[in-house]
Every structure is written in C-alpha cells, then in structure tokens.
Amino acid sequence: MEITRQRPASSPGPAAQFTGTVWLDEIAAPPAPSRLRIFSVHFAPGAHTAWHTHPHGQVLHVTEGAGLVQRAGGPVEPIRAGDTVWIAPGERHWHGAAPDTFMTHLATVEAAADGTTIEWAERVGEREYPGR
C-alpha cells in the first residue's frame, strides 16, 4: 500500500488541445504494471477539449457544475454533477463546460502498452460548440 499525501501542482491545459481556461490535477498515476491514470479537470465556462480518442476508452465522472460531451456523428449531450460517461476505446469525442458555468470532472484512463493515453485531433469548430 502507498499513500500519496502530495500531488503535483495544477497545470494549465495546453492551448493546442483546449479552448478556454482549463486546469489539470493529476490524482493518480501508479507505477507499472498499473496503467491507470486519473485526473481532475477544471473547465471555466465555455472551455472544452479538442477532438480526441483514447486507446482503452475513458470514464468521466462530473463532480461539479454542468458540461457538454459529444462523440463524432452524435448529438451534443448535457452532463451534470453526478453523471458518469463511458467513452469507448478509439471513440472520437470532446467534452467541457457548458457556455455559462464551470465544470469539473474526474477523467480515468488506462495507458496503452507504449504509455500513451490520448491521441489529439483538431479543435472543436466554433459552429460545433453550442452557445457560440
């Protein structure tokens, strides 16, 4: 058993992968053979990810506020505190805060054998994000 009492400092979401103000807190990244990664992600109103995929899928659990999530070809879906979203391996998607409120979610992924957890694509277009 290992208890972590200090986490790395919060880091800003890179502008190439996020629109708006986003902060990331690494919650867990246990040593091998575990490939689990957990982040708490804080989105300012209107902030969201670019399109992306995960090799082993992703679980999002909204802890505060309200947001939006969309998979390629599907409708934009509202999500709120208490909601949990399963995104299948390789499913192209984006997620973030609603236009008028903050949103925080826990993001859980499993790294691939090479250590990658995400493949980024282009930013979400202005016409794709509701409220713009």
Rank of each mutant, 00 (worst) to 15 (best):
residue 51 W to V: 00
residue 122 E to I: 08
residue 75 P to K: 13
residue 15 A to L: 14
residue 129 Y to K: 03
residue 14 P to G: 07
residue 52 H to T: 07
residue 101 T to N: 02
residue 124 V to W: 00
residue 126 E to R: 06
residue 18 F to C: 08
residue 12 P to Q: 08
residue 16 A to N: 12
residue 37 R to F: 09
residue 48 H to I: 09
residue 113 A to P: 10
residue 87 I to Y: 10
residue 105 H to K: 12
residue 127 R to V: 14
residue 107 A to P: 00
residue 6 Q to C: 04
residue 87 I to P: 02
residue 34 S to K: 02
residue 48 H to Y: 02
residue 103 M to F: 02
residue 41 V to Q: 05
residue 115 G to P: 14
residue 86 W to K: 05
residue 60 L to D: 05
residue 88 A to H: 01
residue 105 H to F: 05
residue 109 V to P: 03
residue 65 G to W: 05
residue 73 G to L: 03
residue 42 H to Q: 12
residue 107 A to Y: 06
residue 57 G to Q: 05
residue 78 P to W: 02
residue 79 I to W: 10
residue 58 Q to W: 01
residue 83 D to F: 10
residue 129 Y to V: 00
residue 13 G to K: 12
residue 77 E to F: 05
residue 47 A to M: 08
residue 61 H to D: 00
residue 50 A to V: 07
residue 85 V to P: 04
residue 15 A to D: 14
residue 89 P to Y: 12
residue 33 P to S: 09
residue 60 L to A: 11
residue 15 A to V: 15
residue 97 A to M: 11
residue 20 G to N: 04
residue 4 T to C: 01
residue 37 R to D: 04
residue 101 T to F: 00
residue 131 G to C: 09
residue 98 A to H: 11
residue 127 R to M: 07
residue 38 I to Q: 15
residue 66 A to M: 03
residue 100 D to L: 11
residue 37 R to S: 11
residue 75 P to H: 10
residue 130 P to T: 11
residue 82 G to K: 05
residue 48 H to Q: 05
residue 13 G to F: 10
residue 32 A to P: 15
residue 83 D to R: 08
residue 101 T to K: 06
residue 118 I to K: 10
residue 98 A to L: 08
residue 117 T to S: 12
residue 91 E to H: 07
residue 87 I to A: 03
residue 129 Y to D: 01
residue 100 D to K: 03
residue 83 D to S: 14
residue 31 P to I: 05
residue 129 Y to I: 00
residue 87 I to E: 02
residue 32 A to R: 14
residue 80 R to I: 04
residue 117 T to W: 05
residue 121 A to G: 14
residue 97 A to T: 11
residue 35 R to H: 06
residue 55 P to M: 02
residue 8 P to R: 07
residue 84 T to C: 09
residue 122 E to V: 08
residue 61 H to S: 13
residue 113 A to C: 10
residue 28 A to Y: 13
residue 126 E to W: 00
residue 132 R to I: 06
residue 6 Q to A: 13
residue 33 P to M: 09
residue 100 D to R: 13
residue 77 E to I: 12
residue 1 M to W: 12
residue 84 T to M: 08
residue 49 T to S: 15
residue 78 P to I: 02
residue 103 M to R: 05
residue 26 E to G: 12
residue 103 M to I: 07
residue 83 D to H: 13
residue 31 P to E: 12
residue 77 E to Y: 10
residue 94 W to F: 14
residue 6 Q to R: 07
residue 58 Q to R: 04
residue 101 T to S: 09
residue 21 T to C: 01
residue 54 H to V: 10
residue 48 H to L: 00
residue 15 A to P: 07
residue 1 M to Y: 07
residue 58 Q to P: 01
residue 11 S to L: 03
residue 80 R to Y: 03
residue 115 G to T: 10
residue 113 A to T: 13
residue 132 R to C: 02
residue 94 W to D: 01
residue 125 G to L: 09
residue 125 G to A: 14
residue 11 S to P: 00
residue 37 R to N: 07
residue 29 A to N: 14
residue 24 L to D: 00
residue 128 E to A: 10
residue 16 A to W: 02
residue 23 W to F: 11
residue 117 T to A: 14
residue 52 H to P: 01
residue 92 R to Q: 13
residue 103 M to A: 11
residue 94 W to S: 00
residue 54 H to S: 05
residue 98 A to Y: 03
residue 57 G to W: 00
residue 90 G to C: 06
residue 59 V to C: 08
residue 73 G to P: 10
residue 21 T to P: 01
residue 103 M to G: 06
residue 117 T to F: 15
residue 114 D to W: 13
residue 18 F to Q: 11
residue 62 V to C: 13
residue 2 E to N: 08
residue 130 P to G: 09
